[in-house]
Design a protein around this nucleic acid. Structure first.
Length: 107
DNA sequence: GAATTGACGTTCT
DNA sequence: AAGAACGCCAATT
């Protein structure tokens, strides 16, 4: 019932499979507003305290922009690498392979 | 109550 | 081609 922006972000973020990552723009696009990527990141900021894997959500560059928001600066990289994602210099390598699009996969 | 900021992305110059 | 500015909506201060 809560078709709020945040609720959608939570739902999508939780359904991201392991070893996969998505971008704020992808989620924003899923919400129907690709320009609202900022709100997505902001929503995830709040969801960081929930069971939402914020470390699987990065910007379109594959850069771990919000790594400083984690408990540790290396925590985000560790989590991603732990799932099999190769992170180098705060950036995801071969992100195209790890990219998970909610519109395409989740429907 | 109003102004500013914010885990981004697109578009214009 | 590269750089700068704008747009989105909500929450925080």
């Amino acid at each position: 019932m809560e078709n709020n922006f945040f609720e959608k972000v939570y739902q999508v973020a939780r359904q991201i499979p392991h070893g996969k990552v998505t971008t704020y723009g992808a989620i924003g696009q899923y919400l129907g507003s690709p320009k609202s990527a900022r709100m997505v990141g902001w929503a995830i900021n709040k969801s960081a305290k929930k069971n939402v894997p914020a470390h699987r959500v990065v910007n379109k560059q594959g850069l771990l922009t919000g790594k400083y928001h984690f408990d540790g600066v290396t925590l985000m990289e560790q989590l991603l690498e732990n799932e099999g994602v190769v992170v180098k210099n705060n950036q995801i390598q071969e992100m195209e392979i790890y990219f998970w699009d909610p519109n395409k996969e989740l429907i």
